[in-house]
Structure formats: C-alpha cells, structure tokens
Simulated scan of single mutants.
Amino acid sequence: MPKRILVVLSEYGYWGEELVGPVEAFDARGYRVTFATPTGERAHALPPSYDPDYVDPPLGRSVTTRDMARKVREMDDSTRLDNPLSLQQLIPERPYYSALNHLRELEEYHRGADTAVGDLVAGFDALVLVGGSGPIVDLANNERLHEVVLAFTAADKPILAECYGVAVLAFARDLESRQSLLWGKHVTGHPKEYDYKDGTGFLGVDFNMGPPPYPLEYILRDATGPDGAFHGNVGKEISVIADYPFVTARSTPDSGPSGEILVQVLENGLRRHGW
C-alpha cells in the first residue's frame, strides 16, 4: 500500500522548489500526493521561484537553477494542482466567544472538527507544509490548519514544514495549555540573516510588505524553549532537522533533502537528524 501524503499550499504564493523538491522524492517512491489549500483555490508558484536570473538579496546569488525553474513551471502549468482540498470546507470554524449561544456552538464545533480532522488524519501518513512568502498570509495563523497539525501530532504522524511554513508549527497550540508543540524540540527555519529587508511579496495582491512581518527565527527560538533549539546553520548549504514527529527545512536548497528525510522517517523509522 503506497504512502499517502497531504501537501498544504498557500493561495498567496508558494516557493516552487519547496514544492517540487519533496514531491519528487515522494513520486520516486510511488507515494500518493494530495494537495490542499485554505479555501480550495488553486495554488501558484511565486514568480521569482521560477526565474533563474532572480538574485536572492540576502544570499547575493540566484537560488534557482534553470533545470529547477523548468520543473517549477511544468508543475505550475500542469493540472496536478487543480481542484485541491479546501480546509475551509472540510473543517468548521471555531465560534467567537461573543456568539449568542457560545456553549452550544462550541460543542457543535468540537463534534464537527473532531470528525472532520479525524477522517483527514486517518487518510494520510504524513503532512507537508510548503514554504515561501504566501504562508505568512494564510497558513501561519490559520486555525483550521492548526487543528490538522494538532491532530497529526496526536496521531504520531510526521509533519514536514519548510521555510516560513515552519511558523505554522509554532502557532498551532491547544487553547487550554497554549504551549507550543515545538517546546523542547530542535528545528530549523528561515534565519534572520536570510530575511529580506524589502520586497516580501505575495500573489493576488499588489503589495510589497517590505521585510517579513515577523522574524521567524525569534519565534522559533522562543517556541522551542530552554530544552529545545533553533538551528539556523547560516553558512552551511543544507539545513534539515528531524526531531520526530517534525521535519523542518530552512529554505530553498533544503527542499529535496527534506523530502528524502521524510521518506526515511516513514520507511526506516528515522527519528533524529541534523543535530
């Protein structure tokens, strides 16, 4: 029975290689890959991620080879990303505390969410959160996605998060304890040195945010606590950390290796890598 992978993409733009890299690793093993987005809209790659002449400002060089640019365009132009699952349709929304009948609505929410998320988790062996700037907008603080992450973690199923997709892991918290899932864990993610000073852009909106709205490194350092750690690995070409059930990838060149590490987690029981 082939492994089944749920891949979540932002509707505001994903970084091409951060999708292609893991998916190539999954395809090579014959895994079945299903895509999901927050509202069921089709996801698209950020234009700089399929432009081999685009120079990444913090690194001072292109991060996309011509071969990878071709693969990203082929993926983006294909029908493979058409008709993704909609988290909005699958998972109910938690009611505001100001709801007129909050207790009954909250009970109904939990019944619906437990069933929906339970069915989703039962259908897949692993979850992947693809990075890029888009996740800042519609994945990082997406409560429906948080419920999915919490459920995969509770079911002891692995989660791969890349780049700014790692923010989802820091923010997905049980509302009773409010403690980070990453407390005591070792992770990597976009370090401060790799953040743009200007030019953080998104698909579908004519808006240059300037720098990212939050430095992910600082959030991850706080979320992992005194017994965990953030590993930026600045100056090293690859940064992929596995601390089960989480596999985290820093940025673009880590995409393929992170997919391979998730394969090792699923097939060989890997629990620790990179620290």
Rank of each mutant, 00 (worst) to 15 (best):
V166Y: 04
V168R: 05
V168E: 09
V168T: 12
L169P: 04
F171Q: 13
A172G: 00
A172P: 14
R173K: 11
D174K: 01
D174F: 00
D174L: 01
L175F: 00
E176N: 06
E176W: 00
E176L: 01
S177P: 07
S177C: 05
S177G: 09
S177Q: 12
S177H: 06
S177L: 06
R178I: 00
R178P: 01
Q179L: 08
S180P: 05
S180H: 08
S180Q: 05
S180T: 06
L181N: 00
L181E: 06
L181F: 00
L182T: 07
L182D: 03
L182Q: 07
W183G: 00
W183K: 12
K185Y: 00
K185E: 00
H186I: 04
V187W: 05
T188P: 01
G189R: 02
H190C: 11
H190V: 10
H190F: 08
P191K: 01
P191N: 08
K192H: 08
K192M: 09
Y194A: 14
Y194G: 07
Y194W: 06
D195S: 12
Y196Q: 04
Y196W: 09
D198Q: 14
D198E: 13
D198S: 13
G199W: 06
T200Y: 03
T200H: 02
F202Y: 15
F202K: 12
L203F: 08
G204K: 04
G204R: 06
G204Y: 04
V205F: 08
D206M: 07
D206S: 14
F207M: 13
F207N: 06
F207T: 10
F207A: 11
M209S: 08
P211M: 02
P211I: 02
P212S: 15
P212Y: 03
P213C: 05
P213H: 07
Y214K: 12
P215C: 10
Y218M: 15
I219F: 05
L220C: 13
R221T: 14
R221I: 09
